[in-house]
Design a protein around this nucleic acid. Structure first.
Lengths: 257, 257
DNA sequence: AAACATGAGTTCAAATAATGAACCGACAAG
DNA sequence: CTTGTCGGTTCATTATTTGAACTCATGTTT
């Protein structure tokens, strides 16, 4: 791993649950030397990617990230397009909706609309979802270039629950089913007691760039409901894809009609 | 500059106006060797910080940035708190409001509410504002630790217009005036024909962490209006500071009364 | 209160990773 | 057919990163 890779690795240690870290703690978690870790952090800090609390000396993600993310969002308004659609779908289905974007071999959760019900699935914004073993991942693979699928197969597939699909041919079957139906389904593949369906968000070239998923407690799901959720996910994801590909006039007319 | 610094430097070349770049173009702009540039870009891409368009081979900012920014925003909801306040102030004043956060020796514009009027000031999200020479910068300096001021003075101060304050003692005077009044004012210091006032957003330790500014065409501004804008900026910035410092109960009661 | 543990941050010789000139193949314009 | 530009690659040279050992400060246990 190059120096830049290490710096990024450090950034990835900051999560929704653990948004602040001390120096030694980071060095331990990353398995880097303390001196190395510190040099990387100083470099990141001078670039605004992390900040150090003046008194506690702990590090957290920096404002430079917000800035760059906003520049990206200006040019490619993923959130702006996604949030209203996800919100509508959450209302409609009463379940938790999460939207993710492909990033560096995984799906990065960029928005979550939590179900209003007491018994609901919780997903954290910022969480990285593996391509195998989540409904989102399967849906993504089903609409990716073959190279993405191959790269995924080559890597070791971790089992998150006893139900996780880890066998290459089983994964292939699931992906093909998703490609045929237009949506994927995964029961307890990533977390026990959770059933999800997901549909791909497509880029201008027709390949998946992200996914939209509906996650429900298993107890509320049967095949009929899952099918309905799947179709709803497809519609919502299509809506997002269309708006991202900038069909301003056609879509506006369609929605108005 | 270390390797990590160079990688971040590359990221900073992506702006709202130029959100995509080819390899040679980036190498030229950064004054790095093409091979070096490419290696950095590959590292950044495998970390999700940039993406490469599959067909045009051009690079743009990556989804990993959105992910990290969302994690930060979860923990420190700058935008969530800022946006409604800025929107209200924009309605109230009819002028463009921009909010920035301190990052790596400058102020990063993280949100903009454009005036509804035809003749208005335009500011880009993601733009970096220098500490000297903008109303935001002066307001920030006026409520910073002395070390920040010193660091700013040491660096060369660029003149953006004939009106930009570049002399250290003149800057000092402006900063002291801002500290006394609670808001700063700058006429045409950064762009000709623009008059701005700004107030600091304060962290828990009482030091500035960002600013809120009201930017108007010079033609609409006189001393009375500027004063009124200044007071409005202070109130809005205080509101943001308070909510960020998490005074949920007290503030809710106060607002309710 | 003395010993101990852990934290942040620093140093410098040794080792590793970054560098850049030259190169390739592809494409477009003159 | 030449010329220029583009994205991308190679490899010997060079400069940067590395990490064990070291402060110094703070907090904890006996």
């Amino acid at each position: 791993m190059g120096t830049v890779g290490k710096a990024i690795f450090l950034l990835e240690l900051f999560t929704a649950e653990e948004p602040e870290h001390g120096l030694s703690e980071l060095a331990r978690k990353a398995a880097f030397d303390k001196a190395t870790t510190r040099r990387l952090l100083v470099s990141l800090a001078t670039g605004g990617m992390v900040e150090q609390d003046a008194e506690s000396r702990r590090y957290r993600l920096g404002a430079g990230l917000s800035r760059l993310a906003r520049i990206r969002e200006m040019h490619f308004p993923f959130l702006k397009v996604t949030v209203p659609v996800a919100r509508g779908l959450a209302q409609e289905t009463g379940e938790t909706i999460h939207v993710s974007e492909y990033s560096a071999g995984a799906l990065a959760t960029v928005h979550v609309e939590l179900s209003a019900r007491a018994n609901r699935v919780n997903v954290d914004v910022g969480q990285l979802l593996p391509l195998h073993g989540t409904a989102s991942g399967i849906a993504f693979l089903a609409f990716s270039r073959p190279t993405v699928m191959e790269a995924c197969m080559r890597r070791a597939m971790a089992a998150f629950t006893p139900y996780t699909v880890t066998a290459p041919d089983a994964l292939m079957t699931a992906v093909q089913a998703a490609a045929a139906r237009g949506y994927s389904r995964s029961d307890q593949g990533y977390e026990e007691g959770v059933s999800s369906v997901a549909a791909p968000i497509l880029g201008v070239d027709g390949c998946a760039i992200g996914t939209l998923a509906i996650a429900s407690p298993l107890s509320r799901i049967d095949d009929t409901i899952a099918e309905a959720h799947g179709r709803a996910a497809i519609d919502a994801a299509r809506e997002i894809s269309a708006r991202l590909s900038g069909e301003p006039v056609a879509a506006a007319l369609e929605r108005a009609s």
